[in-house]
């Protein structure tokens, strides 16, 4: 019964997302594209944070690495978006493997600060290695790739086509993530978050578990970075800065880190809020600050998380 309902929900969501380009004006298609990209980034971060209990302040480093590698590929290697995407994902996954290998030895606040440090080292590389990365101006001026879809050549420069392209990649990423968190491995991750000693007792290696999650999160952050760089036609050093990691943490907590789709909802809330606030004031920082404080105090499990909790209580109430 439950799985049917889920299936229906999925179908409804997909139908809604697929019909959007035919209903919304161009600007909102683009905002939705950005929300999708950031959703995948935030959900991949949440594999670390919500499921593994590791607060990483350096995810932007992998996000940006993906973006830069994709643009470098398009400029100097192949003109195929698929090659660029693979380069971005593998490259950021590899960097995540190296950094993760060092970072998973620490936890809690020390893990957070350590990832911040490594993320900022990647930022410095992007910012200072001017001959390769273009320095602070970023790396752009590539021609937006085309995709061959069943013999029809489509250009990703078209906002609608790009939206569908992003939708497919993000759905794939989301599917992968949901498979992982619902697998026995995902259960082990959650168990390790609650009590790492017990996991060690039953013979699992907590560090390897965490490292695996770190690499997956890094690679998917890289994939999001590729999409982001394609969307903005540039890879810029800001993509690697800690404040960008902070933005993803904010989205995740906004939506709710305890729910699979929480980060995606958080990303959507963030963009809509930003749109509304900046439309009537340039002092958006003070409004964002007030909203953040209120959300933490009123919705400590995030908006989606708290709503689901309330919904759960109501349903239980009916049964009683």
């Amino acid at each position: 019964m439950r799985s049917y309902k889920n299936l229906f929900l999925w179908f409804f969501l997909l139908a809604a997302l697929a019909s959007v380009p035919f209903l919304l004006p161009v600007y909102w298609i683009m905002i939705l594209t950005e929300i999708l990209v950031m959703s995948m980034f935030a959900m991949s971060f949440n594999l670390l944070f919500g499921y593994t209990g590791l607060l990483s302040f350096g995810q932007a480093g992998f996000f940006g690495t993906g973006g830069y590698l994709a643009v470098l590929t398009l400029l100097h290697g192949s003109t195929s978006i698929w090659v660029a995407l693979v380069a971005g994902v593998l490259g950021s996954g590899l960097i995540a493997l190296i950094i993760g290998w060092l970072c998973v030895r620490r936890d809690e606040i020390y893990f957070a600060i350590l990832t911040l440090g490594f993320g900022m080292m990647l930022f410095t590389i992007a910012h200072n290695w001017r001959s390769v990365t273009g320095g602070s101006d970023g790396l752009g001026n590539f021609s937006v790739p085309e995709v061959d879809f069943l013999g029809v050549v489509l250009t990703l420069a078209d906002p609608k086509i790009f939206y569908f392209f992003v939708l497919i990649i993000v759905l794939l990423g989301t599917w992968l993530l949901s498979r992982i968190v619902n697998s026995p491995f995902g259960l082990l991750l959650k168990a390790a978050r609650e009590n790492s000693n017990r996991i060690a007792f039953i013979g699992a290696n907590v560090r390897s578990l965490r490292l695996f999650a770190f690499v997956i999160a890094g690679a998917l952050a890289g994939a999001s970075g590729v999409l982001f760089a394609m969307f903005n036609r540039i890879a810029s050093p800001e993509m690697l800065h800690w404040s960008f990691s902070g933005k993803v943490i904010l989205m995740t907590l906004l939506g709710g880190s305890g729910v699979f789709f929480g980060p995606a909802v958080g990303a959507a809330i963030f963009f809509v809020l930003e749109h509304i606030i900046t439309s009537f004031t340039t002092n958006w920082m003070i409004f964002l600050g007030i909203i953040l404080v209120l959300l933490v105090l009123l919705f400590p499990s995030g908006v989606l998380g708290s709503l689901l909790e309330t919904w759960g209580r109501i349903r239980k109430g009916h049964k009683l």
């Binding site: 902070g246 943490i249 907590l253 002092n283 920082m285 003070i286 600050g289 404080v293 400590p300």
Partner: peptide, 30 residues
């Protein structure tokens, strides 16, 4: 602001103080 969330997760405390930072930084500008 901070007292209600002592028992909560570190990340929430970070988020809250981040919000306070935004308010103070922009308030000073006002």
């Amino acid at each position: 602001l901070i007292r209600p969330i002592y028992s909560r997760d570190t990340s929430l405390q970070l988020l809250l103080t981040f919000g306070v930072m935004l308010i103070l930084d922009d308030g000073v500008r006002l």
